[in-house]
Amino acid sequence: MTVALTHFAGRVGDHNDRAMAATPLLAKVLEKRLSVSATVIGQRGSRPPTTWDEELRLAAPELREMAAHYDDLLSRGATPVTALSRCAVALATLPVVAKRRPDAVVVWFDAHADLNTPLTTATGYLGGLALSGPLGMWDSGLGAGLATTNAILVGTRDLDPAEQELVDSGSITLVPVGSNMATDLRRVVAGRPVYVHIDCDVLDPGTVPTDYHVPFGMTLVQLNACTTVLAHSEVVGVEIAELEVDDADSHSYRPAWKIVDAVEPLLLAHG
């Protein structure tokens, strides 16, 4: 397979600049691990946060560029490995995955479900709408097409009422944090091709720098066990989001190496 490494450098609903500072470090670590150069999409921005709809409007040109880039990669049979700034970039990537690989399951590692809509969001944060858009629960302007049967939440533990209802009704499958989660994940994936999204806040707070700190998260060992299971499937692609720099050492590559080491089974699956 041809691995295509992408670094999304732009601003998409950022609360702060720390993810935009960390993403190039993550991209550099992935370049070294994969021995490929990254294609950079977007440019770092510094505007103050605003409402979800205004954030989406401002980010739309770079998100459309990202969607076109993914469409080209997947149409050529390449395997995208992507360093994202924020989860909201999935509004652009996942509809293309659903179009080009409708057989693939999106495995969504995240402390949050990101299944709110403009009508249910309590925070107005664009990232909280990141998975619901591709699922067609609202119109982002970037497409949809992802079936609920092809979406699996992993490690999610901070759900708003409307999101919890989707899980409780069985509309969306959730593999919770636990000692048997790798085994449970293997069962629900059932050998299907996978596209893996990893929000770094799925990990226990303090493991790596992140914007949100939701207790009782995954360990790096658990993440590695889950990615080892997923590597037995066809890996359609991988995207890693929401890593931030540590203000005490904003140039350190150590957090990025922790994440890349934990997901290495997915990267080896490409080779």
Rank of each mutant, 00 (worst) to 15 (best):
M1W: 09
T2M: 15
H7Q: 08
V12Y: 00
G13V: 04
G13Y: 03
H15P: 08
R18N: 12
K28F: 07
L30P: 00
R33Y: 11
L34R: 02
I41G: 00
Q43L: 09
R57F: 13
A59Y: 02
P61K: 12
L63C: 05
E65L: 15
M66D: 02
A67S: 08
A68P: 02
D72K: 13
D72F: 11
D72G: 08
L74H: 02
P80N: 11
L84D: 00
R86F: 03
A90N: 15
A92F: 02
T93I: 05
L94C: 13
P95R: 02
A98Y: 08
D110K: 07
D110L: 05
A113S: 08
D114Y: 04
L115W: 06
L119W: 08
G127E: 11
G127C: 13
G127K: 07
G128W: 07
L129H: 06
S132Q: 05
P134N: 09
W138P: 12
A144L: 04
G145W: 03
G145E: 04
L146W: 01
T148Y: 06
T148L: 08
T149F: 01
N150K: 04
A151W: 00
A151F: 04
I152N: 01
D158R: 15
D160G: 14
P161M: 02
D168T: 10
D168F: 09
G170D: 03
I172H: 03
S179D: 15
D184I: 06
R186Y: 10
R187T: 15
V189Y: 10
A190E: 15
G191W: 14
P193G: 11
V194E: 10
D199C: 10
V208A: 05
H213R: 10
G217K: 04
M218G: 01
M218H: 04
L220N: 02
V221W: 13
N224T: 08
N224S: 08
T227Q: 02
T228V: 06
L230C: 00
S233D: 07
V235E: 09
V236T: 14
G237A: 12
G237E: 12
E239C: 09
I240P: 03
D247R: 13
D247S: 14
S250L: 15
S250N: 12
H251Y: 14
S252A: 14
I259L: 07
V260W: 04
V260K: 03
V260R: 02
L268R: 15
G271P: 12
